[in-house]
């Protein structure tokens, strides 16, 4: 077989499609990562404080999200719910909503287990110092959880980034969609998908590096 990478790399159209696709993938991942994390925080806090009723809703939500395939959640939000509620959104909005919901379930479970694994001695010391529940949560439990769970949160985030390729299935023109499009025009499947693979690796490592940088500049300073 003859490799013909130039068919892709010399075409401004294809390069543009790849560039736009990459921006869409990264943008949606970061946006839904941030939103999902905030939602997860609320879900996990509600469970930790055993807020009546909301506690159970949160537990059911987390279990539900973590036990259904992302692609089914995506189809449900993109094709199922609009029939019921009659909304018409751009494709990327459906993707953003579905990814946010999906991310939040996984992040919430990590945060919840982090909150719950705060050492007994830490809580006793805090109680003996007469700290309020609010101070204990904000100043002891949250920072210790973020420090302890950073590796899990970070690798979960990277993993979820890699699964975002499925949003191409509902017509979002992401990085995977760009690859599929170029492949369908050129039939250079090997060249296209090796390029895609390399780009996903590069972006995953880049995201990991950014997260580690942020951690090192913030809570990482508080690790002896």
């Amino acid at each position: 077989m003859e490799l013909r990478f130039f068919e892709i790399y010399r075409s401004p159209e294809y390069l543009g499609i790849i560039f736009d696709g990459a921006l869409t993938s990264l943008g949606l991942t970061i946006a839904s990562g941030v939103l999902g994390f905030l939602l997860a925080f609320v879900l996990a806090a509600v469970r930790f404080w055993q807020v009546p009723l909301l506690n159970y809703i949160s537990a059911a939500y987390i279990d539900f999200i973590r036990n259904t395939p992302l692609i089914v959640q995506l189809f449900f939000i993109a094709f199922g719910l609009p029939l019921l509620f009659g909304y018409v959104w751009p494709f990327w909005c459906h993707a953003l909503l579905a990814l946010t919901i999906n991310f939040s379930g996984y992040f919430a479970e990590i945060l919840r287990s982090g909150f719950a694994s705060t050492q007994k001695g830490q809580l006793e010391a805090a109680a003996a110092l007469n700290l309020s529940n609010k101070t204990i949560f904000n100043s002891i439990i949250i920072p210790q959880t973020l420090i302890k769970m950073f590796p899990s949160l970070s690798s979960q985030f990277i993993f979820l980034f890699l699964t975002t390729g499925v949003i191409s299935e509902i017509g979002v023109e992401d990085l995977t969609h760009a690859g599929l499009y170029i492949d369908s025009r050129t039939f250079r499947s090997f060249e296209v998908f090796i390029t895609l693979t390399a780009l996903y690796v590069a972006f995953a490592l880049m995201l990991k590096g950014i997260l580690q940088f942020i951690f090192a500049k913030t809570l990482g300073r508080r690790v002896a």
Binding site: G121, Q122, E124, A125, A128, I140, P143, L219, R222
Partner: peptide, 11 residues
């Protein structure tokens, strides 16, 4: 109170 394991806040 002072504990056997110190229980300082490590962060």
């Amino acid at each position: 109170m002072v504990f056997q394991q110190f229980n300082l806040f490590p962060h």
